[in-house]
């Protein structure tokens, strides 16, 4: 036989055998795919932030289709996405609890003291490894913006050397909170009315020496609180939000003004919660 013809025919034959095998395999081992997964996946914002508690948007859509998840877990998507998912799955709509990030440190470079001049790699993770960064307070914001680099919506940025959150842009996904080496970022919901903007567990006198915006554990807020929601945990005022009625008197009396009134609040929900209490 002509060698060229032989070569062409044999390669064609091997190709055909492979094709038949593949077709047979795809028929025999066909896996039924829930088309709702793809539908839900298209609805989700695709930030893969993990705020829902699943491994990205793919994981969440699969869990939804399997009936393993609530429809109101997508924080960046908000109520609109929750409504669409409920429509696809044919289940009752649930309101999404709006979330937002808060940086629990007010120690910008102009109010805090520094223990050294840091000239290393300008990321918080690297600075944290080197004696906790330049600031004398080991609990505070290092200020190189690891959080800002993570933010998918550009809501968090470094301003005057400290991380600040733009509440209008923040989707509450929590990606910033996961990279902050000092765990300063707290993702809270829209029923929070007062916030402690300090994370220092140093003794009052130490804190005062290091930073003029830190909690010095003077207990004024604790005495002022009409419902006893505030307690001192290791030299830091902590609010028990299951008791707090959101009167804001703690913020008024705070010596160093580190107790603050939250700007991101849902008035209707707060009133409902208050009535329930």
């Amino acid at each position: 036989m002509n060698p060229i013809l032989l070569a062409v025919l044999s390669v064609a034959a091997i190709g055909a055998v492979c094709a038949v095998l593949l077709v047979a395999a795809s028929k025999l081992m066909y896996v039924r795919v829930d088309e709702r997964v793809a539908q839900i996946r298209d609805t989700l914002p695709g930030a893969n932030c993990g705020a829902c508690g699943f491994t990205g948007c793919d994981g969440y859509s699969k869990a939804l289709a399997d009936g393993d998840a609530e429809t109101n877990l997508c924080v960046p998507g908000g109520d609109a996405v929750s409504r669409e998912i409920s429509g696809i799955l044919g289940v009752g709509y649930k309101d999404v609890l709006e979330m937002v990030a808060a940086v629990r440190c007010g120690g910008a470079p102009d109010v805090r003291g520094d223990k050294m001049e840091y000239d290393g790699i300008t990321t918080c993770a690297a600075a944290k490894m080197y004696y906790g960064g330049a600031a004398s307070c080991q609990y505070g914001c290092i200020g190189y913006g690891d959080c800002a680099a993570q933010c998918p919506t550009g809501a968090i940025c470094i301003e005057d050397g400290i991380a600040r959150v733009n509440l209008k842009l923040c989707a509450g996904c929590g990606m910033c909170a996961r990279v902050c080496p000092n765990n300063l970022i707290w993702i809270h919901d829209d029923t929070i009315t007062t916030l402690m903007i300090c994370s220092s567990h140093d003794k009052g006198a130490d804190t005062r020496r290091k930073c003029s915006a830190g909690c010095i554990a003077c207990r004024k807020c604790e005495h002022e609180c009409p419902v006893g929601a505030i307690s001192m945990d290791n030299n830091l005022a902590v609010i028990d939000y299951s008791v707090c009625i959101g009167c804001g008197r703690c913020a008024e009396v705070c010596t160093t003004k580190c107790m603050k009134i939250a700007l991101f609040t849902n008035k209707a929900r707060i009133d409902a919660t208050k009535a329930a209490k």
């Binding site: 091997i14 190709g15 492979c18 095998l21 593949l22 395999a25 081992m29 896996v31």
Partner: peptide, 16 residues
């Protein structure tokens, strides 16, 4: 040709 087909086959089998 064979390796490409083989990997596809393995992928289908793994999926199942």
């Amino acid at each position: 040709l064979v390796i490409a087909a083989l990997v596809q086959l393995v992928e289908i089998a793994l999926k199942k």
